[in-house]
């Protein structure tokens, strides 16, 4: 390495130093710290006390923790598939390049921009409140509305519907994927007499499968980390049916100040997400189609 190269390297690192420092201080350090804290009892006010694997054992007998697992799995396994199906559907509709396509895409993407926000969550409360919009409309049709947020079997569905409504970003990715499929395949299929549904099953889905895999993984990760909506709309109730993992973790960390316990929870969540991501990857060779078969 000559002087010039070394100088360039130093300058290079200097230029990216803000991000490096950010990574070390705000990402790597907290990760390590939380791993260590997971083996301690730490209430913030007094120094952490080493308790070994106690926190992990307590997870086994914490019924609210089990409720939170149940709620989170329920949410992930309903909201994620529904959102993906919905996103794909809308992407199919928006695929043809008409004159207003850009406008429609913009409009359909809009909910995702605002959907995660606190404001929408507050509006959602009103919409599904016992004197909210939904019950008002039902009332006009002569149907007595439910107490959506107070009923243990419907409360989580208000959150799932909100999640499905935010289909924008997977939709855009699907749209890009759909545009990549060569028209010649469809043309050849039509000549051979394949109808719309057959084309969808035999051409669109296999050609789109890498994109589906990507979306699936991103949405699974997102789904497990759901927080804001439940925090504002239901605060975990009724009967813990919407007590999502992150919400309970937050309550443990910042309301009960059991930082060690919360850290242990965070690491379990990491393992759960890693497991399902790995599962998606492993299963992909049975259903994901790459054009260059050898080089996948």
């Amino acid at each position: 390495m000559n002087k010039r190269e070394r100088y360039n390297n130093v300058m290079g690192y200097l230029f990216i130093s803000p991000w490096l420092i950010g990574f070390f201080i705000f990402t790597l350090f907290p990760i390590i710290a939380s791993f260590i804290l997971a083996f301690t009892r730490y209430d913030v006010l007094s120094p952490p006390r080493w308790i070994g694997i106690d926190n992990w054992f307590r997870l086994l007998e914490d019924t609210r923790y089990h409720n939170s697992l149940k709620a989170t799995f329920y949410y992930v396994f309903t909201a994620v598939p529904l959102r993906l199906i919905f996103a794909l559907l809308v992407a199919m509709l928006l695929k043809p390049s008409t004159r207003l396509a850009g406008l429609y895409r913009g409009i359909y993407y809009l909910p995702s921009l605002i959907g995660g926000s606190v404001a929408v969550a507050v509006v959602w409360r009103q919409v599904f409140g016992s004197e909210g919009l939904i019950n008002f409309i039902l009332g006009m049709m002569g149907i007595k509305g439910l107490n959506w947020l107070g009923n243990p079997s419907t409360a989580i569905w208000t959150l799932i519907i909100l999640a499905v409504w935010q289909f924008g970003s997977p939709m855009l990715i699907f749209l890009a994927g759909l545009k990549q499929i060569p028209d010649s395949l469809y043309e050849a299929a039509s000549i051979d007499g394949a109808k719309g549904w057959d084309q969808f099953i035999k051409i669109t889905l296999p050609m789109l499968s890498p994109v589906i895999l990507f979306n699936l993984i991103m949405q699974i990760i997102n789904g497990f980390m759901v927080f804001t909506q439940a925090y504002i709309i239901t605060s975990g109730g009724p009967l813990d049916t919407t007590l999502f993992y992150s919400l309970y973790l937050y309550q443990k960390a910042f309301q009960s100040f059991e930082m060690g316990y919360a850290s242990a929870m965070a690491w379990v969540l990491l393992m759960i997400i890693a497991f399902f991501t790995a599962l998606a990857f492993k299963s992909s060779r049975f259903w994901v189609y790459y054009e260059s078969e050898e080089g996948k």
Partner: peptide
Amino acid sequence: PSIETDIARGT
């Protein structure tokens, strides 16, 4: 108020 009503009202 029933517990349903109270929960739906939130904080």
